[in-house]
């Protein structure tokens, strides 16, 4: 039985086709699984393993290294408050404390209604706009306690249009039409010097022939 819906399975195959080796699609496919289900299930990992040609243990072993993958359910809105140095200097820790009080949960926990999960994160590259946070990986900058309350109220009332469901990362996908793709092949099928290099430098291929291909 397939974990991925048929549309997502097609998407998964398309993603794999962009890499010289299928295993390179492992992380993107885990994102796709998380987008479909909200978190990464065992069933999802088995299918990702199948598609990438590795074992389910390798998928878990790799996936568990990365913070964004959740192996248990999380709230519909993941709120990540930065407390790293630039944010800390202008109130990042106080913002996190405020968030805990407003949501009534500790860092790492989910509200009982399953709406919000609160996390403390490291620098999210908006340091000049501190203190800042992300909700489902969308930025909220120079956030005060009042801003935070307003934001939570808006989300609860369904007034946060720019926020996709948790797990959905990018809503725009790369598409490479078959008529435009140059050449995506395994390394052993691309041992020759590229044509434009050879045209300009006939010796570019030197060394390519005597290379031992194992």
């Amino acid at each position: 039985m397939s974990f991925f819906t048929s549309a997502n399975l097609e998407m998964a195959r398309e993603i794999i086709s962009r890499y010289p080796m299928p295993r390179s699609a492992l992380i993107p496919l885990l994102h796709l699984a998380q987008e479909q289900h909200g978190w990464v299930t065992d069933e999802a990992m088995r299918q990702v393993a199948d598609l990438c040609g590795v074992t389910p243990a390798e998928v878990k072993g790799t996936g568990s290294f990365y913070e964004m993958f959740k192996f248990h359910p999380v709230g519909s809105y993941l709120i990540n408050v930065c407390t790293n140095i630039s944010c800390m200097l202008v109130g990042g820790e106080e913002l996190l404390e405020h968030a805990q009080q407003r949501l009534g949960v500790n860092t790492g926990a989910t509200t009982p209604d399953g709406m919000f999960t609160l996390e403390e994160v490291e620098c999210i590259a908006a340091c000049t706009e501190a203190p800042c946070l992300q909700v489902n990986y969308r930025y909220r900058l120079r956030v005060s306690g009042d801003d935070f309350d307003q934001m939570v109220n808006d989300i609860a009332a369904g007034r946060a249009d720019d926020l996709p469901r948790h797990g959905t990362l990018a809503t725009v996908r790369q598409r490479i039409g078959l008529d435009r793709v140059a050449q995506i092949v395994a390394p052993e099928e691309a041992r020759e010097a590229p044509v434009w290099l050879k045209r300009n430098d006939p010796t570019a291929d030197r060394g390519a022939q005597d290379r031992v291909v194992s």
Binding site: V181, A182, W196
Partner: peptide, 15 residues
């Protein structure tokens, strides 16, 4: 031209 190359967007997961 005879120049051909593919650019693929890929991404991490927090580390």
């Amino acid at each position: 031209s005879d120049f051909s190359v593919d650019i693929v967007l890929t991404w991490g997961a927090g580390a």
